[in-house]
């Protein structure tokens, strides 16, 4: 009995030896900052000022702050809109790229290419194309006579949200296509053949076979992408910086503005902490799901 207990203990100790570096990273660089960030959000901490505990004052200020609500609205609208667009376009593109045609692998590689472009470079490219004065998009639209005035891609607040969505969708779409192509390739062709014999049309086969078969893939892709899209700081930071009139802020850029541009670290942290419960919820859900898929319990 003693020997068994000793063995168990030895196993545990050894495992934690292997895990030590990982645990250091998780505890010191993820968990600790997270806790510290929550604490900071309850203080009046500012740049070069330690500040003190002020309870919910930072959050109360946010509740009264129309810019905060605007940013929250933008974050939600953009996330839902962009993810939905990527979902529809991703499914369509995945169907296309699973058709048999010559050079399919090469075409797939090209279609996935935006994934390999650093996110910052991608938005810089888009900002240059959206440029009101020398941008190629306005030149094309004006040249073809589709518009008679330049489109204010980034300075009309309504248009700017669309521009942000386009640039974000461009960067994010390849991930959806890859995931869906991967999922669709595992569907046995016999299923489709049987359905075709039964007289099911293309749309009906897509609905009754494709979608149900990759439902899990879709769910995970959508959840992962929602987290990433919601926090796509660089897209807004580079394209509009939150302007004009603070109309295109999302929460991370607002936190940056409050925390670093206005030097109020506590207020900035509060912006981030205010949405943490939502993310913890999504992360718990998704973690359970991904662990189940992988069979690790």
């Amino acid at each position: 009995m003693n020997r068994v207990r000793a063995a168990v203990r030895r196993w545990q100790l050894e495992a934690y030896g292997f895990l030590l570096p990982l645990l250091l990273v998780l505890i010191l660089l993820a968990a600790y900052p997270l806790v510290d960030g929550v604490w900071t959000s309850f203080t009046s901490r500012a740049v070069a000022k330690p500040g003190q505990f002020i309870g919910f004052a930072n959050f109360a200020r946010l509740m009264d702050d129309p810019v905060y609500w605007m940013a929250l609205r933008n974050s939600v609208v953009l996330t839902v809109g962009i993810v939905a667009a990527k979902l529809v376009a991703g499914l369509a593109a995945a169907v296309l790229l699973t058709q048999p045609f010559p050079g399919r692998n090469f075409i797939r590689a090209l279609a996935f290419l935006p994934w390999a472009v650093p996110g910052l470079v991608a938005v810089l490219g888009w900002r240059w194309m959206f440029d009101d004065q020398a941008g190629v998009l306005n030149a094309l639209l004006l040249g073809s006579g589709l518009v008679s005035f330049p489109v204010d891609w980034l300075s009309d607040p309504e248009v700017a949200l669309w521009s942000i969505a386009i640039a974000a969708a461009w960067q994010g779409l390849p991930f959806f296509i890859m995931m869906f192509v991967g999922g669709m390739m595992t569907i046995p062709p016999e299923l489709y053949e049987a359905a075709a014999i039964d007289g099911a049309g293309a749309w009906s086969r897509f609905r009754t076979i494709t979608i149900p078969s990759i439902l899990d893939v879709i769910a995970i892709t959508v959840m992962l992408s929602s987290i990433w899209t919601f926090n796509s700081f660089h897209t807004v930071y580079v394209l509009t910086g939150g302007g004009p009139a603070n109309r295109t802020h999302i929460l991370p850029t607002l936190a940056y503005q409050y925390g670093l541009q206005r030097n109020e670290l506590g207020q900035g942290a509060a912006v981030l902490v205010s949405v943490m419960p939502i993310f913890i919820g999504i992360i718990v859900l998704l973690t359970r799901r991904m662990l189940r898929e992988k069979g690790v319990r």
Binding site: Q133, A134, D152, L154, S155, G241, G243
Partner: peptide, 21 residues
């Protein structure tokens, strides 16, 4: 006034003038 001037940085008007816009 060009609409884009709403989001110009400090070089926006330089570019506008220097490109004849």
């Amino acid at each position: 006034i060009p609409r884009a001037a709403l989001t110009w940085d400090d070089s926006g008007n330089n570019v506008a003038y220097q490109t004849g816009r």
